[in-house]
């Protein structure tokens, strides 16, 4: 109700309200395996304060989180573990690949390191840098929030891809 007593309301879609809520209450799961994890901690701490963007409740259980931040090297031995954690997270879920090692293997092009986590799980936003500055991660978070507000989730994307594949079959 407005100050002059008039009824004040606006109409919107239910989906938009849901997306607004999702984008402003992300629960990150930190998968910090090396030095990027330190930058991630710095981003979460009071200096840069990721809480300003609604992503301060760090959860260490995949069941309780919806944003996986992979910060650091993922070895071949660790790759199935990462896949397990991703599968355990409930949909809707998003993934940020933080740093050169997580995005591409970085300088470690050897027998023991995965060449980018996108060989194992789908990734929404990549953050370049070795390690990236906290501003980089915050920028990635804002970009991800933009995409969430448009209703972009992994399951929706999967559905779209399936639809596309079926329409391709019909031709």
């Amino acid at each position: 109700m407005a100050k002059d007593g008039e009824l004040d309301f606006f109409t919107t879609r239910f989906e938009d309200v849901i997306n607004f809520a999702r984008k402003n209450s992300l629960f990150p799961l930190p998968f910090g395996t090396s030095c990027c994890g330190i930058e991630l901690m710095s981003t979460l701490a009071s200096g840069y304060d990721m809480a300003r963007f609604g992503a301060e409740v760090v959860r260490f259980s995949p069941r309780q989180s919806d944003l996986l931040i992979v910060a650091g090297i993922v070895n071949l031995k660790m790759a199935p573990v990462l896949r397990n954690i991703y599968d355990q997270m409930a949909d809707p879920k998003w993934v940020i690949s933080m740093g050169a090692c997580a995005s591409s293997g970085g300088i470690f092009n050897v027998y023991s390191v995965t060449q980018g986590i996108d060989t194992v799980i789908p990734v929404d936003v990549y953050v370049p840098g070795c390690p990236p500055a906290p501003e980089g991660l915050l920028n990635a978070l804002l970009r991800l929030e933009d995409r969430i507000s448009k209703g972009d989730t992994h399951s929706l994307r999967r559905e779209r891809a399936l639809k596309h594949a079926h329409s391709g079959d019909a031709k």
Partner: peptide, 27 residues
């Protein structure tokens, strides 16, 4: 250090530098 299903010994000079061995399940 390596996966127990790994074949070969990676720090030998005759082991290829990029001799990946992919396992789909955890050790």
């Amino acid at each position: 250090l390596m996966d127990m299903r790994w074949e070969g010994h990676p720090l030998r000079k005759d082991y290829p530098l990029r001799g990946y061995q992919i396992f789909l399940t955890p050790e």
